[in-house]
């Protein structure tokens, strides 16, 4: 099975100050699939996913070495427009973080900051995005209420709708369900499976069961090293590395 590759990570090393987080990680992320980055706390999976949209740039003592190619373009090249990049590669965070504004404004924000003011166009984007995030039916009658009045699971779907509104190609999920109850988690997972038809999805999780449920490919990271990468079914049935096997069987992590 030959897949198109969207993101290529080549020899990625990253540091917070002197502390090295990622150690020479090399990995190809296939298109139109769900790739899970799995591993125990502190393995570098969140650091890695935050390299894809350069979210780590916000941390002053963060340093990155190596290459990450998105559709062949080096994300860390000097002439890359970081705001354009983040429009292509959206992100959903660990804790639902809607803006303290209305549901409508939350979803419209990404479009508005591109300078678009056409009311009808924005209305359309808001509706379409909320539908894709499976939230439209629940909120269509109260679009102008505060997004903070919604439940945690709904807030997380607002964040997904908000990310979809700017028409990204890749969506990064950084442990999207860690703050949610099992029912809300199931909804988000279902949504992720739904979205992979049109988007390339990367999910960070420390939950092996979640990786097994949602992903097509799984990368197992441990202490900054990429231990193993392959189709999820294969990783979970015949792990090639002892550490992967130990993690999957719950010996640590």
């Amino acid at each position: 099975m030959k897949q198109d590759v969207v993101i290529q990570i080549q020899g990625a090393n990253s540091f917070y100050g002197k502390k090295q987080i990622l150690k020479d990680v090399t990995l190809d992320i296939p298109a139109q699939t769900v790739t899970a980055l799995m591993g125990p706390s502190g393995c570098g999976k969140s650091t890695l996913i935050r390299c894809f949209n350069r979210m780590n740039d916000l941390i002053s003592n963060f340093r990155f070495e190596g290459k990450i190619l998105y559709k062949g373009v080096d994300l860390y090249a000097k002439d890359v427009d970081i705001t354009d990049l983040r429009r292509e590669i959206g992100m959903v965070f660990q804790k639902p973080n809607p803006f303290p504004k209305s549901i409508y404004e939350n979803v419209a924000y990404g479009v508005r900051i591109q300078g678009i003011t056409d009311r009808e166009f924005i209305d359309g984007v808001v509706e379409e995005s909320l539908k894709k995030a499976a939230l439209w039916e629940e909120v269509k009658d109260r679009l102008h209420e505060s997004a903070l009045s919604l439940s945690g699971g709904q807030q997380q779907r607002i964040c997904i709708a908000r990310a979809l509104a700017v028409k990204p190609h890749v969506i990064l999920f950084d442990e999207p369900c860690s703050a949610l109850d099992p029912i809300a988690t199931a909804k988000i997972e279902e949504l992720i499976t739904e979205l992979k038809r049109n988007y390339t999805i990367i999910v960070v999780t420390h939950n092996t069961a979640q990786a097994a449920r949602v992903s097509d490919f799984t990368a197992f990271l441990y202490l900054g090293d990429l231990i193993e990468f392959g189709p999820t079914a294969r990783i979970f049935t015949v792990p090639q590395d002892k550490r992967t096997e130990e993690y999957l069987t719950g010996k640590f992590g």
């Binding site: 979210m55 973080n97 803006f99 924000y109 990404g110 964040c159 700017v166």
Partner: peptide, 14 residues
């Protein structure tokens, strides 16, 4: 909270 800033940056805001 920094989560608000991150959310904004992640959508391509300057």
């Amino acid at each position: 909270p920094s989560s608000i800033r991150e959310a904004s940056y992640a959508l391509g805001a300057t």
